[in-house]
């Protein structure tokens, strides 16, 4: 193995009642990597992230962070173990100020650091510093997504999970957050990125897995980014 694994999923099954939304999922994210997870609506991408986070506990299989099993741990203890999820739909506290949203992100911090606690957010997205006193609900969609990512980063996680962060954003804002992912990787944070923008994700990530109907169908590398037919075929492989 070239790198130590930050995240390992081994034979994971996730069920809603008697229906399994994800089956026999095995994947590995090395330290400092960006791994993509793409696939059509309802493929089980959010379910996978929620299982890692403990929001929807896995029915079967093993999930490990830095080699430690996360089984049966509460959501907040998984957050405090070093995984941060930027959830589907951002989930900003719209009535709270930008700064209050960021302060909430500090809840999962494992220790205190020297300097501005919001540094990781402000360095990446200076606009958050400028708007720190504003109501979060008054920000634009792109700014709210920046806040959601910044809020996740101030806890200084080892692993960042992103659930369709570009959904509903204007093209310029999409460029902005994809650029941010590269910068986040540069400071050593590992990323598991769930996206619908298949081509951009494949181009950015070290590997991109295609999930269809709850099962892994294919793994693509950056070299496949321009192979539109291969990506489309992966989506249709059901």
């Amino acid at each position: 193995m070239p790198e130590a694994a930050a995240l390992e999923l081994d034979g994971v099954e996730v069920r809603y009642g008697s229906v399994s939304a994800v089956r026999d999922l095995t994947l590995r994210v090395g330290k400092g990597e960006i791994v993509g997870l793409i696939g059509p609506n309802g493929a089980g991408k959010s379910t996978t992230l929620n299982a890692i986070m403990g929001l929807q506990p896995a029915h079967r299989g093993e999930i490990k962070l830095n080699g430690q099993a996360l089984r049966r741990r509460s959501v907040e203890s998984i957050a405090r173990a070093g995984i941060a999820l930027v959830p589907e739909g951002r989930r900003i506290f719209g009535d709270f100020t930008v700064e209050e949203n960021l302060r909430l992100g500090l809840a999962a911090r494992r220790r205190t650091y020297i300097g501005d606690p919001f540094g990781p957010a402000f360095e990446l997205f200076p606009i958050l510093s400028e708007f720190r006193g504003r109501q979060a609900g008054a920000l634009s969609g792109g700014q709210q997504q920046q806040l959601a990512i910044g809020r996740a980063l101030v806890s200084r996680p080892d692993l960042l999970l992103l659930d369709e962060p570009s959904l509903g954003l204007a093209p310029l804002a999409v460029d902005g957050i994809f650029k941010a992912f590269t910068e986040i990787r540069e400071v050593g944070t590992t990323i598991l990125l769930v996206e619908q923008r298949a081509q951009r994700t494949v181009a950015l990530a070290n590997r991109t897995h295609v999930l269809v109907g709850g099962e892994l169908r294919m793994t693509l590398g950056p070299a496949d980014a321009d192979d539109t037919e291969k990506i489309i075929a992966a989506y249709l492989a059901s």
């Binding site: 986070m53 929001l55 509460s74 959501v75 907040e76 957050a79 405090r80 941060a84 999820l85 959830p87 989930r91 506290f93 009535d95 709270f96 209050e100 302060r103 909430l104 992100g105 809840a107 999962a108 911090r109 809020r151 806890s155």
Partner: peptide, 21 residues
């Protein structure tokens, strides 16, 4: 206080951020 207000507004997201229920 901040954690309590957050939990009252969206408990699931608050826990996601590490707020202890």
């Amino acid at each position: 206080g901040l954690h309590t207000r957050a939990a009252a507004s969206d408990f699931r997201t608050a826990r996601l951020l590490g707020v202890r229920a």
